[in-house]
Design a protein around this nucleic acid. Sequence first.
DNA 1: TAACCGTGGAA
DNA 2: TTTCCAAGGTT
Length: 280
Amino acid sequence: MLQQTRVAAVIEYYQRFLKKFPNVQKLAAAREASVLAAWSGLGYYRRARMLHAAAKQVVKEHNSQFPSTAEELCQLSGVGRYTSAAIASIAFNQPVAVVDGNVERVIQRLLGKNLADETIWREATNLLSTKRPGDFNQAMMELGATVCTPRQPLCLLCPVEQFCATRGEIKSDTSKVSQRKREAFYTLNRRHGNVLLTQRPRTASLMPGMWELPAVTNPNGAKVWLTLKHSITVTDYTVRVLENVALQNAEAKWISPSKLDRIPLTGLTRKILKAGRFLQ
DNA sequence: TAACCGTGGAA
DNA sequence: TTTCCAAGGTT
């Protein structure tokens, strides 16, 4: 959950997820739709599918016991260089260093700029406390998150300021992809307290198989019930929600509000249904 | 290798 | 208001 996602955004999901899937066997035995529903709104849904697959791997290939070395953990789906080292060091006290966005920035500034990835990992490994690798790794990340911040780092508070080559020089920003702006229309159709939803194609690259309100291509004349802003990847949407627009050849299903929390909704759909009091 | 994948909050 | 970017991994 923490991959490219802030701790603050994760905590609530994490607690709810563990309540629903309290151990690796329960997660492995769950339906994918159920896992995605618990992930709904968190984004990067491939992580949920990968985690589900990894749970099955642990159950089948490791007798439901988590492997304890970074090398073995790295074989699990969705677990890469960072995540395997984080689990191995924090959960199993293995002497392996992590490099996340924070650590990368800290080391770049400490040693100077333009270090290759391999160099950063090597330096992180050199610095690592082999006695308390988990605490060291978390301290490095926390230093980057709270002191050695991307903009206006707090060098006066930095415990390693005297060793720093750059004293918080701004990290050279890479290519910036400007956000595109678009307008999108959806319709909120109610009948007997139910709401009409459609499923995104399973072959879609973006949020495959997730459920959302039916899109409206030709909104002329329809009354706008709600307008809101929503950003998805590189596009800033102005979303206008209409009411009871007749659908044309769209596969849609009437969903009862009581079932909504078991359906993988997109974050935007979740937002709209909350505004309409279909969801808490 | 670089593009792609969601969302929300801070600056 | 806009911009930036998070406890990255996969293809």
